[in-house]
Every structure is written in C-alpha cells, then in structure tokens.
C-alpha cells in the first residue's frame, strides 16, 4: 500500500494513547479501562522546555503532575538562596499530590532538567467529575488516597525512628 494512504488509515496505536500511559503509571495501575478513559479526558498535557520552572515554593497548589517523558528536579530553597535537591524524577513518577484534595501552598519547588511532557491532574477537574460521574471520581480518588496514605505511613515511621534515635531533638515539639 502507498505510504500516504497507509498513514491515513493507520489507527492510533494503543501504546501511544494517553489512557495506556496512565494505566502504566503505578498510581493508576488498578483503574479499569473505562475509568482510565474518563481520566484521559480529565488531565491536562503540558509541554515544558529544559530548565523551566514548574512551580515554586509558596505557589498556590491545586494538583499533581505525572511525568510522561523527560526529567524533573524537586528542590528546596533556603532563605539564603541555596538550593538542596530533594528528588530527581523520571517518566511515570509523580509529584505534588499533597495539594490535590485540599488547597495548600507548594512546600518545595520543581523544575525540568530536559524537555519534558507532564500530565497534570487538578482538584477542579476531580470535583467536577465527582458531580458528573461519582463512581469514576471515587475510583480515581481511591488510587490517589492509597498512595498518599502510603507516603504518610512511611513518613510517620521515619519520624518514629528518628525520635527513638535522637529523643533530645523532639523535646521542643512535645509542648
């Protein structure tokens, strides 16, 4: 067949679709196909250049980002201006999920390290979906709640370990 005609009639490969990618992300791995297609209509795909700021500490946060391609650096900035890297993330990693449900300021900054495509999921879209399709919204939120509580659990455990190791640092917090 002619290449031109072949291109026109070629179907979009399933592996290239956004829904397929979202299913491959660990957070949404448990979603069924229908919920994944719902999610696809909900997210925003944003393209970033290398070294572009995604958000800064103190920005109003309203959602989470999943990395589709590229690399992202999450860092803290001290008042003196020095930066400390918190994490370096690659494809299928996600960040910023703590502001998805409750409005809060960003507690760290994030920037891209190379040309990056991010998939953003925001609070306004989730609440809108909850009105229209409560079932789908419930399944998506459950996935996110699992991850957030897992992370909270790890943080709790880490705090407990630190408290047992250095009890003197925690004297101030008790009051």
């Amino acid at each position: 067949m002619n290449i031109l005609w072949g291109n026109i009639f070629r179907k979009k490969l399933e592996e290239e679709s956004l829904a397929f990618f979202l299913g491959a992300v660990p957070v949404f791995a448990e979603l069924g196909k229908r919920s994944r297609i719902q999610l696809e209509t909900l997210v925003h795909v944003r393209t970033y250049k290398a070294n572009e700021t995604i958000f800064e500490t103190g920005d109003p946060g309203s959602g989470m980002y999943v990395i589709r391609s590229g690399a992202v650096q999450v860092f803290e900035r001290s008042p003196a201006g020095t930066e400390r890297e918190v994490a370096r993330l690659g494809p299928k990693d996600f960040f910023g999920e703590s502001t998805l449900v409750v409005p809060a300021k960003r507690t760290a900054s994030a920037r891209t390290l190379e040309p990056t495509v991010l998939v953003g999921l925001f609070r306004a879209d989730i609440t809108d979906l909850a009105k229209r399709r409560p079932g789908a919204a419930y399944r998506i939120l459950l996935c996110i709640a699992k991850i957030v509580s897992e992370r909270l659990h790890v943080a709790d455990y880490e705090l407990l370990r630190l408290r047992q190791k250095h009890p003197e640092y925690f004297e101030d917090f008790r009051s």
């Binding site: 970033y48 920005d59 109003p60 309203s62 925001f122 306004a124």
Partner: peptide
C-alpha cells in the same frame, strides 16, 4: 473552556485553571 485555559503559559497555567473554575 479547557481549550481557552490551555493557552495559558506553563508557569501560570495551574493558577489560571483553578481561578477559572472558581
């Protein structure tokens, strides 16, 4: 509305999106 919001630059996109919905 989504199409209009997506025109916002990356840096302000999140805020524009949130504000538009409010």
């Amino acid at each position: 509305l989504r199409g209009c919001i997506s025109l916002a630059p990356n840096r302000t996109f999140e805020m524009v999106h949130d504000l538009t919905n409010l």
